[in-house]
């Protein structure tokens, strides 16, 4: 770094070399940016930039490839685990991961998710659960909480009308093909550290062929939730984490 103000000796944090310089399009306070940063750092630390192929979702993270500097395939909505399956099988020495929202993973792509996990594909699935469809403007997601408002359940999710929140991660943990299933968050510095550890472990599992790793990150979507970023974090802790408690669900 040639910045004269910064004495390299005093540097405590540096942007990952696997992150591109493009300004992120995410709303301030959104969890996506933080998770991107973690993914980039882990790829850098594992020295896997030239061996990584990411599968981008359709959702707010659709432009993930503008931020994380590895090769990417842009998937149709929900189909990332199918792409990742073939990419990994045809390129077994590569690190292959999907990055998916709750609509992508637990609604339109439920089938692909369950079957990739059940086959034990040696991939990592990073699952951003913000309980809403962020990209399309805040509609109800499969993980929207009971009573939680969205543009398609403006009076709050009503189980008579909409059914129950789909708690998909414990379901994936039950499948023989998954080796590591964990639920994390990035709303505090400590949680960011834990999520980073989880993603590192998941990526390592993928490279040694232990099966499918799933890292759910319970996230906030302040725009979709119509809250300030700070309020969204508190609300997430008080509500989302009750329905989706953090911790490892499986580690084999």
């Amino acid at each position: 770094m040639s910045n004269p103000i910064i004495n390299p000796k005093n540097l405590v944090y540096e942007k990952s070399s696997v992150l591109l310089d493009n300004t992120m399009h995410y709303c301030p306070g959104c969890s996506h940016g933080t998770v991107h940063r973690i993914v980039a750092e882990v790829i850098e630390e594992m020295n896997m930039q030239d061996k990584t192929i990411g599968c981008a979702p359709v959702g707010c993270a659709v432009f993930i490839y503008n931020y994380i500097n590895v090769d990417f395939a842009e998937c149709a909505h929900g189909r990332a685990p199918a792409l990742a399956t073939a990419i990994k099988r045809l390129n077994p020495d590569h690190l292959v991961f999907t990055y998916q929202g709750d609509g992508d993973l637990a609604a339109i792509g439920t089938g692909e998710t369950i079957h990739a996990c059940n086959r034990g594909e040696n991939i990592t699935i990073i699952f951003i659960n913000n309980g809403i469809y962020g990209m399309t403007g805040g509609q109800m997601a499969p993980t929207t909480l009971v009573g939680m408002k969205s543009s398609t359940c403006p009076y709050g999710r009503d189980v008579q009308l909409n059914g129950y929140p789909l708690n998909i991660t414990p379901l994936l943990a039950q499948l023989e093909g998954t080796c590591y299933v964990t639920r994390q968050s990035v709303h505090t510095a400590n949680n960011v550290k834990k999520t980073k550890k989880a993603i590192r472990k998941a990526f390592e599992n993928s490279m040694v062929g232990k099966g499918t790793s799933v890292v759910e990150v319970v996230s906030s979507c302040n725009s979709g939730w119509k809250m300030s970023p700070v309020k969204a974090n508190t609300w997430m802790e008080e509500n989302m984490l009750k329905a989706y408690p953090l911790g490892d669900l499986k580690d084999k």
Binding site: I53, C55, A73, C75, A76, R79, A82, L83, A84, T85, A86, I87, L90, N91, G111, E112, H115
Partner: peptide, 18 residues
């Protein structure tokens, strides 16, 4: 053997991407 034709064609998409 994929779980559906939807998965099959997207596996093809994945493989072709590489």
């Amino acid at each position: 053997q994929a779980e559906s034709e939807v998965a099959s064609i997207y596996m093809v998409f994945g493989g072709a991407s590489t």
